[in-house]
Design a protein around this nucleic acid. Structure first.
Lengths: 203, 203
DNA sequence: TTGTTTACTGACCGATCGTTCGGTTGGTAT
DNA sequence: ATACCAACCGAACGATCGGTCAGTAAACAA
């Protein structure tokens, strides 16, 4: 997406801006905040970026790149489809938790709706990786490991919903007594996948 | 929570402020915006509410009340536990979509973490209703309708995660070709519950 | 009738907002 | 030496921010 080469100063500004925008949103961060955090003058920020909105767009752009590459390197070639799916879900959650800023930025734009920014472009990225997930589930269906009468798209979206919800409500969820023995992402993710794969109904 | 009696003017301000704060967040809305939308002077807003923060707290307070009562009136006494659970999930999603502002306000505060506002109090409300959900699932387990080797808390949180994710990403999700025949909340919710209850694995 | 309270306003305040400007560096190519 | 340029700065711009204040009109109690 963004192939421009950024100077060292501009890169620092972009980094700090991404972190602040991710936590406090566009309106919640002033150029002064960013400049002070970086340790440069406010005017210098405008030397590197034409406006606050341009800086924000650059931040979102970089976040989309990171988001995309993080999703793409989840591709796995595990023989066992179920095991592969489980690993992908776990890795995805752990990445979200260890590097939350890009996800926060992208999710804020996506959930806002209003088709601001390049929402259709973000939707394409998300859908491509969503389709990849669906494809793996279908592979499990033709191999006979997964039952054939479940909608692969619905399973995929539930898998994603679990991870996104865990990511967003981590601080709240960990306060619930039901989850206090699941305080690490691996165990939580494993339990979630097991529950999803076994299903609710008795046979 | 909030037992004060509000004058008509104050109530209008609260309503408009809730709607604007829900869409644009605290920093994204100015007192001028609210006053202009209501059709009163900016000073009048400060006549009814001591400060912007006090107004926001009143908005969150009212949203918590609405959120709580909406969750509570989901209590159902359906004989069939699975059918009851399915109905509750569907009703919940439809309420979210038809009246999104309180949910947006509460979710924004909850997901922010930082334990701002009365996050522990919100956590209590959420957990009480979460426990209610878990309880129903356990009822299904002792009745033999649900299998006993799934974690009820995990099923409950997955049910919630589905609904929250559908609610948040409704505009994006409906663009996916996989969901274009599920354009109404009832069918989407039903499909999600079926997928969750049947499970992924073949027997 | 007078006094009090409530709802509301326009004018105004200091602070901060995003943004611009003139000017100063240090390095690099000619 | 000269010219140029990206990188940086302090100071200031008009606009808007949250918030205050004196005053007005209506309602109500005495």
């Amino acid at each position: 997406m963004n192939n421009e080469v950024l100077s060292q100063g501009a890169h620092r500004i972009l980094e700090v801006a991404a972190h602040l925008f991710a936590r406090q949103g566009y309106a919640g961060v002033s150029i002064n905040d960013i400049a002070a955090e970086v340790g440069v003058s406010k005017a210098n920020v405008f030397h590197h970026f034409a406006s606050k909105e341009a800086l924000y767009l650059a931040v979102i752009d970089a976040a989309c790149d990171e988001f995309k590459t993080e999703l793409e390197c989840l591709k796995n070639h595990e023989r066992d489809v179920a095991l592969g799916l489980k690993q992908v879900a776990c890795q995805h959650l752990m990445r979200l938790l260890s590097n939350p800023d890009p996800a926060r930025l992208v999710l804020r734009e996506v959930f806002k709706g209003e088709s601001g920014i390049d929402s259709s472009q973000v939707a394409k990225i998300l859908h491509r990786n969503f389709a990849l997930l669906v494809e793996q589930i279908e592979r499990g269906q033709v191999s006979g490991q997964f039952r054939r009468d479940t909608d692969p798209a619905m399973v995929a979206v539930t898998l994603i919903a679990q991870n996104i919800f865990f990511f967003q409500s981590w601080e709240i969820l960990r306060q619930f007594p039901e989850f206090q023995n699941l305080d690490c992402a691996e165990r939580l993710s494993a339990a979630a996948f097991d529950s999803l794969s076994k299903g609710l109904f008795a046979k």
